[in-house]
């Protein structure tokens, strides 16, 4: 399924693609600290996203900025979920996995697709579209699949953990923590199947957004191409 090498040039140009774009909209720590003392203009995006809320909060424009921050955080998570959902969906479609590994891909894939759908629904029109993906052969045989799944799941746990304290809305927070712990279950599951310690450390560290972006970009899985996988035909991924 891998594309010929000469068509990778376009993907290479987009190494700073969808995920970095999402990351750049995330609130920095400094912004969060100064938020309270700053009068932010009410964002048109937030108003259209949360019309009722925007009305109620008309006298508190910083609330609109908080809503913008949450949208950025959820979109960042959505791109990571697109990545994972496409990875498992493609592995399942190619049918090269068997036994416990095939079961893991099938169940975890269904979870990641559910996460995509939940985030898209929460974001409404503000949801970013899925980029294209090229998994470069990691979905068509067990060994690279396993290694890649361990890396993706461990990274997602750290990436979500970084977002949790930055989420303003308690409703979004409740959803994010419930996904965060499931990603950790996924990570331990694939580690168990790979024969490595499922819980290697007493503490899981958060992964900074820039680091998450760098790690994902280093895989060159995210491309400008329209999805070439089954995701192309799955309405759930098209927003």
């Amino acid at each position: 399924m891998s594309e010929p090498t000469d068509t990778l040039a376009l993907a290479d140009i987009d190494v700073d693609g969808a995920l970095r774009e999402a990351a750049e909209r995330l609130p920095t720590r400094a912004q969060l600290l100064h938020r309270a003392g700053r009068v932010a203009a009410a964002g048109a995006l937030a108003t259209s996203l949360f019309p009722a809320a925007a009305q109620a909060r008309a006298s508190k424009p910083h609330r609109a900025k908080q809503a913008d921050d949450d949208v950025a955080i959820l979109n960042f998570a959505l791109v990571l979920e697109y990545l994972q959902a496409n990875f498992y969906t493609e592995a399942e479609r190619l049918g090269s996995l068997h036994g416990a590994l095939a079961e893991q891909a099938r169940v975890v894939g269904s979870h990641e697709r559910a996460h995509v759908k939940a985030l898209q629904q929460a974001l409404g029109h503000a949801a970013v579209k899925s980029p294209g993906f090229n998994f470069r052969g990691t979905t068509d045989s067990p060994d690279p699949f396993r290694a890649t799944a361990v890396a993706l799941e461990d990274l997602t746990v750290g990436a979500y953990k970084e977002q949790l304290p930055k989420i303003h809305s308690n409703r979004y927070l409740a959803a994010a923590v419930s996904i965060h712990s499931v990603e950790a279950r996924h990570a331990a599951w694939i580690r168990y199947l790979a024969g490595i310690v499922p819980a290697e450390h007493a503490f899981d560290d958060a992964v900074a957004d820039t680091e998450t972006v760098d790690i994902v970009n280093s895989t060159r899985f995210v491309t400008l191409h329209a999805p070439r996988t089954s995701a192309q035909h799955a309405p759930a991924f098209t927003g």
């Binding site: 959803a175 965060h180 168990y192």
Partner: peptide, 27 residues
């Protein structure tokens, strides 16, 4: 949160050993 995900890893690991789905639900 640094503890929560490790507890989830423990739960997943224990479920693997019990022959149960390590992650039974999406959330």
């Amino acid at each position: 949160a640094r503890v929560i995900s490790v507890e989830a890893r423990h739960a997943s690991w224990a479920r693997s050993l019990a022959g149960k789905l390590p992650a039974p639900v999406p959330a």
